[in-house]
Design a protein around this nucleic acid. Structure first.
Lengths: 225, 225
DNA sequence: GCACTCATTTGCGTATGCGTTAAAGTTCGC
DNA sequence: GCGAACTTTAACGCATACGCAAATGAGTGC
């Protein structure tokens, strides 16, 4: 349940990072199979650390080890998306409620505020890429403020599982004005110490986000990513 | 995010199972350190599969790999318990609501019913061990009925993290009559298709369970397990 | 007695090679 | 031509060994 060990420079750690990058970017496509030896060559190291990285990434739900068929990159179907968003909705809403109950000062909430502001600016500038980064920052900061390290870890895991799909669909979506109103409203509820309202708003926000991305996948007949 | 690979009889799989048993039973005590070589000897295999098992169990939050200090069994503090129960409460309540909305038949709910009945019987018989098993079965079946595989996996992980503590405190607690009334009420709400009620009852049930076990730890000055 | 330096020990991350076995390919019979 | 049986190939799980570096212990000087 820990983050990958902070083994600065170990080959396993490097393999984890590089494999993640390859998975999120789609270079290693959802559903594709790759032998351990192939990946070891790709990453320029022996099979042992690659295998160890794969075990870890399997536990994170990003891939599946299939003996004699190699490492299968876990595709994410529409149903997977539903599941993932369901978990995120529950746990982030909990975090929002906890954050509201925590009595944070304005300084404590500056990270959230900065993310919302960055999103507002990127919407004005029509810059979806920057918006996406700020969006991610908002959600990460939100769960951090909820002060449950397990929620932080699980939410990160779920976000990772859905990352490729979000990246792939980013430019298919409308400019997320409504989304950011929600973010601002959640932040205000937290600032005002209203746990019930923070939870409610965030839940509705996440439900909308789920429906939007699933709607895109269905519209464009994307069965899985 | 997958269950450990179903590699029947592989040393890694065996190591995972045996280490889990040792951890849950307290033989490998929370906070204790064990070298990979020591564990390899204990399990009668070479270090490679032991290390692979440890990587996996680290990802499940049961232990931590500390270079040169070995494998540290993750102790569970009162704060950890709070976190774990918070996650379980959210996700199981979601599962209860989903199960209620799913329109299950009586046959579909027979597993839940059997668990509740077994608990009632073991309460009559003053048999806490049997009650604990039935309790676990109830919770597992509940999340299964919620039909979100990720919730199933996360809930299992959280339950594992708290397993030693529950086992250790089992005989310190009162006979759980109220607990089982809750179980019966949740089942009835699910049977009646009332998602809001199922969620509410289960949430209160889990809150009570959390407060009870934490109360025990604090009463007996048990700082961590 | 304490702090510093150097030498030794040892634990781990990794590379390599071997044995097992599943999968792929080939051959033969109908 | 198709299916079954046999053979070959190769991927993986694992054991072993090696090199690196962190930790420990010993010795010396103040």
């Amino acid at each position: 349940m820990t983050e990958p060990r902070e083994k600065q420079g170990s080959n396993t750690q490097r393999a984890v990072e590089q494999l993640r990058d390859l998975i999120f970017s789609g270079v290693l496509a959802g559903g594709s199979n790759h032998l351990e030896t192939e990946l070891a060559e790709m990453l320029g190291m022996s099979r042992t650390p690659v295998r160890e990285a794969a075990v870890l990434l399997e536990a994170q739900g990003l891939l599946e080890l299939q003996p004699r068929r190699g490492v299968r990159i876990q595709p994410v179907s529409v149903d997977d998306m539903r599941e993932i968003y369901e978990v995120l909705t529950e746990l982030e809403s909990l975090a929002a409620a906890n954050a509201a109950a925590a009595g944070y000062s304005d300084a404590d909430l500056s990270g959230l505020d900065a993310a919302v502001t960055a999103m507002e600016e990127s919407i004005e500038a029509d810059d979806l890429e920057t918006w996406a980064k700020a969006d991610e920052m908002f959600h990460r900061e939100l769960v951090r403020l909820g002060k449950n390290s397990r929620v932080v870890t699980i939410a990160a895991m779920m976000s990772d599982q859905v990352r490729r799909a979000r990246q792939t669909t980013l430019h298919m979506r409308a400019m997320p004005s409504r989304s950011n109103e929600d973010h601002r409203a959640v932040l205000n509820a937290i600032r005002g110490g209203d746990a019930v309202e923070a939870r409610r708003i965030h839940r509705e926000h996440r439900e909308r986000a789920k429906n939007e991305i699933i709607g895109l996948l269905e519209k464009y007949r994307i069965l899985s990513l």
